Computed example of a mutant assay.
Amino acid sequence: MQGDGDGWATGPDGELRWGRHGAAGLLLRAPLADGTPAVLLQHRAAWSHQGGTWALPGGARDSHESTVDAAVREAHEEAGIDVGSVAVRAQRVTSGASSGWTYTTVVADAPAPLDTTLNQESTELRWVPEDDVEAMALHSGFAQSWPSLRTRPVRMLLDTANILGSRGPTGWWRDRPGATATLLAEIAGAVPRTVELPDDVFGWVSRVEAVLEGRARTAVVDDARVPVHTAEGSGDDELARLATVTAVDADVTVVVTADRGLRDRLPRGTVALSPSAVLGWL
């Protein structure tokens, strides 16, 4: 029933938490002009709980809603967000109580900072660069969960031949340059984006570096989101070499490959993801 989640839930300790069926908020991320991520924050109205602090658009979940539906609905109601421009990436329970009450943060991306509209629950809505979030006066619950929600800049290297082979019998071998160009165009259209990494870490991928070998080196690729490295010899050798080069604008290096031999050659600290992690974007 619409609106039946509004109200306080009382736990065994007597503490009140908003949302009879729990609550959810939307962490909406979008790329700025320089490709770095910003998040949409709400300056809470003075009359609200912890008024005057900054947090995520969110609120009570109705009994018939999923946490994703509740978070997206609240962002639309409180910030006027166009729900059709929201791509959900993950969800994570960031607060809970012994009564079973939970607050779920739904992580999502938008292709660019979206227009917003205030309602009575906010005094301001602002797209804030991720690096600036911690300096703001944050709602205590959001401040506690933010370190686990923020992204780390990712340098992603793509074993392109391995990815093509993982797509199955598409006939890519008959026109390897054409199939390569098509794949990389599709990947370019899927970034920038938030990605989930091992150990519950979120990463931000603003571009994907593709390594091409053999006949694929003649593929025509002209998109800054997928810079290309052409291997004179083995693509694996080039990937292993690139993985040792420290990128000044990245905290994490990720190599996308199913090749166990290549994975064994990667420097310590490099994250290896399976091709399905990227093919799932398409």
Rank of each mutant, 00 (worst) to 15 (best):
T257R: 01
V226T: 15
A231F: 08
D109G: 02
G35V: 05
L40P: 03
D82F: 08
R207P: 00
M1A: 15
R29P: 00
F202I: 03
D109I: 09
V128T: 14
P31F: 11
D4F: 13
V93D: 13
N162P: 12
V220Q: 13
G80Y: 03
T104N: 06
A143N: 03
G84R: 14
D62R: 14
T53C: 12
E134I: 04
D175F: 09
L118H: 10
A135C: 01
W101D: 07
H139E: 12
L262Q: 04
R241W: 11
M136P: 03
E65F: 05
R225V: 00
R225C: 02
V254N: 04
T257W: 06
A70S: 15
L266R: 09
G165H: 15
V88D: 08
W146S: 02
A188I: 02
T230K: 13
A46H: 13
R17M: 10
P57G: 07
S274L: 11
R155M: 03
A137V: 11
R193K: 05
V191A: 03
A33K: 08
V72D: 09
D259K: 10
E130H: 06
P227C: 05
L262R: 10
T104E: 15
D175W: 03
A46F: 03
E209P: 00
G214Q: 10
A277V: 09
G168C: 08
T160A: 10
S166G: 12
E77G: 00
G178R: 10
L197F: 08
R126T: 13
R193Y: 01
T244C: 14
E78N: 04
L28Y: 11
A79T: 07
D13V: 10
P37R: 06
D237G: 06
R215V: 13
V191E: 00
W173D: 04
R17N: 07
L273S: 00
V133M: 02
A60M: 01
V205T: 05
Q144G: 05
A45D: 13
A60R: 10
T67V: 12
R126N: 04
V107I: 15
E196K: 12
G59S: 07
E121R: 09
S276Y: 01
W101H: 05
V252K: 07
G235D: 04
R268A: 15
V93Y: 00
V107N: 03
T117E: 14
L164E: 07
G19W: 01
E121T: 13
W8R: 14
A224S: 13
A250S: 14
T10N: 01
Q2E: 15
A231I: 07
T160S: 08
R263D: 12
D236E: 14
W172S: 04
D109L: 00
R152Q: 15
G214R: 07
L282W: 02
G22A: 06
A55R: 10
Q120I: 00
A185Q: 11
L282T: 15
D109T: 09
L279T: 15
L114I: 10
D200N: 11
S148D: 13
L157R: 06
L164C: 08
T36C: 05
W281F: 07
L27N: 04
L125D: 02
D132M: 09
V39Y: 03
Q50A: 15
H43Q: 12
A240V: 14
T180S: 10
L26G: 05
E232S: 12
D223H: 02
A247F: 02
M1Q: 11
P227V: 07
V245Y: 06
